[in-house]
Amino acid sequence: MNVEHEVKLLVEEMNRLGSPGPDGKLQVKFGVLFTDERCANIFEALVGTLRAAKKRKIVTYDGELLLQGVHDDVLISLV
């Protein structure tokens, strides 16, 4: 699967699971994405897709590498 397609799917899933934050940008917690059954079926490597989206300035989040459990409360925002 190509990276651009996976990033597009990520944006769709964030729209489904997220809600507007105080700044009006759509936000979703990493733990919500990671534990969602539909996301688990779509993304082989969710963390890799998030990193690719961050590199392309489509999403923002604190840190470089997100780990399940430790970073479940990290907010991911659509730019």
Score class of each variant (00 low, 15 high):
residue 65 L to T: 13
residue 17 L to I: 12
residue 58 I to S: 06
residue 69 G to R: 08
residue 52 A to H: 02
residue 34 F to M: 14
residue 26 L to S: 09
residue 6 E to Q: 11
residue 34 F to Q: 10
residue 29 K to M: 12
residue 12 E to R: 08
residue 65 L to E: 11
residue 60 T to D: 07
residue 11 V to T: 06
residue 77 S to W: 09
residue 11 V to F: 00
residue 62 D to F: 11
residue 40 A to P: 01
residue 29 K to H: 09
residue 17 L to M: 08
residue 25 K to I: 00
residue 15 N to I: 02
residue 77 S to D: 02
residue 5 H to M: 04
residue 19 S to W: 04
residue 76 I to N: 14
residue 25 K to T: 03
residue 70 V to A: 05
residue 61 Y to W: 05
residue 59 V to N: 05
residue 59 V to R: 04
residue 46 L to M: 10
residue 26 L to P: 03
residue 11 V to H: 02
residue 16 R to C: 05
residue 7 V to I: 14
residue 25 K to E: 07
residue 42 I to E: 10
residue 18 G to H: 08
residue 15 N to V: 01
residue 77 S to A: 15
residue 11 V to A: 00
residue 31 G to W: 13
residue 35 T to I: 10
residue 49 T to D: 02
residue 52 A to T: 01
residue 50 L to I: 08
residue 51 R to P: 03
residue 74 V to W: 06
residue 43 F to R: 09
residue 73 D to F: 09
residue 12 E to K: 03
residue 42 I to C: 09
residue 2 N to D: 13
residue 71 H to G: 04
residue 3 V to R: 01
residue 47 V to P: 03
residue 54 K to S: 10
residue 75 L to V: 08
residue 60 T to L: 03
residue 38 R to V: 15
residue 33 L to P: 09
residue 70 V to C: 03
residue 64 E to N: 09
residue 70 V to D: 05
residue 41 N to F: 11
residue 1 M to E: 00
residue 71 H to S: 11
residue 6 E to G: 00
residue 55 K to W: 06
residue 25 K to A: 10
